[in-house]
């Protein structure tokens, strides 16, 4: 790994039709660092994550994952780079037609040459990490919201990603459940040294997990820095979002 940054955005712009969602946004996240993306609803926070994973293509700008310019990649190459990242979706996004076990086994079976036993071992390990080891044969609809989110995290972890992209980890959850998720994320960051980009509204959680905040306002990066620095930021929106 020649670059010290796991993910680097440079001058990224994205618009859907007339609506400019991101305008010339640049930031980077290093290994073992968690950056929380804050912003009012509809300011392109989730879009930023999807751009990083190349689920969307930016209109302008570069996104580098390590040394790879992901916006230029396709097919096998893209697949290889994506595998270095894990994505925790807002609602977990478990495949409803598959059991929890199969949700985790599917990517392993399809994308690795691991044996059945190895796969079982990985599944047991990651489910153990999110404390769902006893529920692996349940279907997603049988799981509660918090369990679904933890299961989603477990699935994001099966490839042992260097970078974890997290979309609204606490949405729809009570404070206690949300802080359980935050603990798991913190554990990942500290123990595995993963880089994290967390999109969230939950300031409490963000302050626990995040090292730096990136504040988006009207598509622009309004502020970037440590929370305590941003509290004194000149932009009022930034100050209010960070809770200064």
């Amino acid at each position: 790994m020649s670059s010290e940054n796991s993910v680097t955005l440079h001058g990224v712009s994205k618009s859907f039709g007339e609506k400019q969602v991101l305008d010339n946004v640049s930031f980077s996240v290093g290994r073992g660092e968690a950056i929380c993306v804050l912003g009012r609803s509809g300011t392109g926070k989730s879009v930023t994550l999807k751009l990083i994973l190349a689920l969307l293509k930016p209109d302008a700008g570069n996104i580098r994952i390590g040394d790879d310019e992901i916006t230029q990649l396709e097919g096998q190459e893209l697949s290889r780079v994506r595998r270095r990242m894990g994505f925790l979706f807002q609602s977990g996004a478990l495949f409803d037609s598959l059991s929890l076990h199969d949700n985790l086994a599917l990517p392993l079976r399809r994308l690795t040459k691991k044996s059945k036993d190895e796969i079982e071992e990985i599944i047991d390990r990651v489910l153990g990490q999110v404390e769902l080891a006893g529920d692996k044969h349940k279907m997603p609809r049988e799981l509660s919201g918090g369990m679904q989110k933890r299961a989603g995290l477990a699935r994001a972890l099966v490839f042992e990603p260097e970078t974890l992209l997290v979309d609204e980890p606490s949405s729809g959850l009570d404070r206690i459940t949300a802080s359980e998720i935050d603990d798991l994320l913190l554990d990942q960051k500290v123990r595995r040294g993963s880089a994290m980009i967390i999109v969230t509204h939950d300031l409490h959680g963000a302050r626990r997990v995040g090292d730096r905040f990136a504040v988006l306002d009207k598509g622009r990066l309004a502020g970037l820095g440590r929370p305590q620095d941003l509290e004194k930021h000149e932009n009022e929106t930034v100050r209010r979002l960070v809770g200064g």
Binding site: L53, R80, R82, F89, R155
Partner: peptide
């Protein structure tokens, strides 16, 4: 699946 981001999830899993 599109609405619940399952399709994105599949892509995110490099499939």
């Amino acid at each position: 699946m599109r609405a619940t981001e399952q399709i994105d999830a599949i892509e995110a899993l490099s499939m």
